[in-house]
């Protein structure tokens, strides 16, 4: 019961944040110098058509009323139509977002599998050569722009060595072969048992996922190292050593056990960042994800699509933050 109450307290801030998000996307939609009516009917439409469409969209009403209309539409899952694709924006997002989830998830898994052990061992051997190498590596991940790294990867592994496939999510011969289930190409291929398509998908996923993983790895490694150094200074580490425990048990059970919950926030933020910020990587690798959709929409002044994608990105941040917060309340005995 007490646990339920703390969980509810964690979720209390969500409605406020959501309201802010909706308000901001609304305001952006109104202050950009793009007339949504012109975007639909074109530059040369007669004035009466323009006026008619304007009234139809509710744009002739006062701003507060427009905002209420906007909220009402959102609540009915209506994000408007994309001028570019002519589909409802929700349909477009449902189509593009899974590819981003696929890429971001692959990237975060690699980043965690490599970044956490690197951070833990760097902290355990603070000041050693290993520590310095890890530091240079992780600062590199943070400071080399992903598009530079992406282009280098393509140049080396695709063009020069020929061991990786080129851009996109799959090779042309598999186009349309894999039935749509989750929208995540690799998962769908596995679900339908098409293992050659699965392999092809994994190969396509490898380079962009590695580029993004390297970017997150820097952050995750540095945070893990910093948290671990702090934990290893604790008196309870002296206690653990005095008990005669093995170095490995002290490192993982006692020190890492104390920072694990704190790391969840770091990981959630890194994952949210990947889900929303893969714009450059998706562009370089022609990955048909949300980032690519957002970029193309923005370049075409397709405001409904831009706002819809922005809203999704905002929702991802709020959702993952909430999850991290709930994890804290569930797993940390001090908060519980």
């Amino acid at each position: 019961m007490r646990r339920l109450r703390t969980l509810a307290a964690g979720a209390a801030s969500v409605p406020i944040t959501l309201f802010g998000l909706v308000l901001i996307t609304f305001v952006i939609g109104r202050i950009v110098p793009i007339d949504p009516v012109i975007a639909i009917v074109g530059d040369h439409a007669p004035p009466d058509v323009i006026a008619h469409v304007r009234a139809e969209l509710g744009l002739d009403k006062p701003l507060p009323v427009q905002f209420l209309i906007y909220v009402d539409r959102l609540l009915h899952g209506n994000l408007g139509r994309s001028v570019m694709t002519t589909h409802p924006v929700t349909t477009d997002i449902a189509h593009y977002f899974p590819a981003t989830i696929e890429l971001a998830t692959a990237a975060i898994l690699i980043a965690l599998a490599v970044g956490i052990p690197l951070g833990v061992f760097a902290a355990a051997r603070q000041g050693s050569r290993f520590d310095h190498v890890v530091r240079v590596l992780s600062i590199g991940g943070q400071s080399v722009p992903v598009f530079v790294l992406g282009l280098i990867f393509l140049l080396v592994f695709y063009v020069k060595l020929g061991i990786a496939p080129g851009t996109g999510q799959q090779s042309v011969i598999y186009e349309g072969m894999v039935p749509y289930v989750t929208g995540m190409h690799v998962v769908d291929a596995a679900l339908s048992g098409q293992w050659d398509a699965f392999e092809d998908g994994l190969a396509h996923l490898a380079l962009p996922a590695l580029v993004l993983a390297y970017y997150s790895l820097g952050y995750i490694t540095r945070m893990t190292r910093a948290y671990m150094i702090d934990a290893l200074r604790g008196e309870y580490i002296v206690t653990a050593r005095a008990k005669g425990l093995s170095a490995r048990r002290i490192l993982w059970r006692h020190a890492f056990g104390n920072i694990a919950v704190g790391l969840i926030t770091v990981i959630a933020l890194a994952y949210a960042n990947l889900l929303s910020g893969a714009v450059l990587t998706e562009t370089v690798f022609s990955w048909p994800g949300l980032g690519l959709y957002l970029t193309v929409s923005l370049l075409n002044a397709d405001m409904n699509a831009v706002l819809g994608a922005t809203l999704v990105v905002g929702l991802v941040y709020i959702g993952l933050n909430l999850l991290a917060d709930l994890a804290y309340r569930l797993f940390d005995p001090r908060v519980r």
């Binding site: 002296v238 206690t239 008990k243 006692h254 056990g257």
Partner: peptide, 18 residues
């Protein structure tokens, strides 16, 4: 641990909080 134990000053810091 096995042959010699060590008791530290403040249990607030010397016990593992989690």
């Amino acid at each position: 641990g096995r042959r010699a134990g060590l008791i530290l000053q403040d249990p607030k810091y010397a016990l593992n909080p989690v």
